[in-house]
Design a binder for these strands. Structure first.
Length: 202
DNA sequence: CCAGGGATGGACT
DNA sequence: GTCCATCCCTGGT
């Protein structure tokens, strides 16, 4: 009997979202979409801690049909579109009505690389295959249709345990692309694996 | 109905 | 490193 590999409700159910965001580094994101299997190691994450966090779509419990998944139970996928073209993959954490979420910003390809290259219209493996929140969604086949998807079932899209990255190998710093969000700009809610090339920006 | 925002990406130097 | 094209979709009207 092996330990449960797919991260389940107990994992995402914690309200300590910063700890989850940090712990997700080194985990494996898997997608089985359109008959294609892809996997990649998570290398970069950001936490969004509403209601207090001005950078979050759920700041002060702002609630719309778009961000409804942020209020869903931990382990629910929150997808939205940025700049009209880029898909963003987030994971809700904590109990229902607790609008915390984690944005997956970059991954390192492991398997299904031919499929990723085709989806990205690339011919060789380089950083712009999956090192960026919009890029990894395109490579892994993720789009808005997965908004609300349950990541704890091991179906279509899920995350698996793997190695734990030691704290000494993790960089904690400020988030990207939230310049007009007041003092939230300086909150150290971004995590990435030190010296890993598959990071969106140093 | 439509104005405007948006948690980027890539092209170029 | 800097610059800026992109355009769907939300949400307020």
């Amino acid at each position: 009997m092996t330990a449960q590999v797919v991260l389940g409700p107990e994992y995402y159910g914690s309200t300590d979202t910063l700890t989850i965001a940090k712990d997700l580094l080194g985990k494996v994101l898997r997608t089985h979409i359109d008959g294609q299997h892809c996997s990649a190691m998570i290398t970069e994450t950001e936490a969004y801690l509403a209601p207090e966090d001005r950078a979050s779509h759920a700041y002060q419990y702002r609630r719309t049909t778009r961000n409804e998944s942020m209020y869903a139970i931990g382990g629910t996928c929150y997808m939205y579109i940025c700049y009209g073209i880029h898909q963003m993959f987030n994971i809700a954490t904590g109990p229902v009505e607790h609008p915390h979420a984690i944005l997956i910003r970059a991954v390192e390809p492991i398997s299904g690389i031919d499929t990723m290259l085709r989806r990205r219209s690339l011919t060789s493996v380089k950083k712009n295959l999956t090192a960026g929140p919009g890029l990894l969604c395109q490579a892994m086949g993720l789009d808005k249709s997965f908004d609300g998807h349950d990541l704890t079932k091991g179906k279509l899209v899920w995350i698996e345990r793997r190695e734990t990255i030691r704290s000494a190998e993790i960089v904690q710093t400020t988030r990207i692309g939230i310049d007009s969000c007041g003092e939230a700009v300086q909150y150290p809610y971004r995590f990435y694996i030190k010296d890993n090339p598959w990071v969106s920006k140093k």
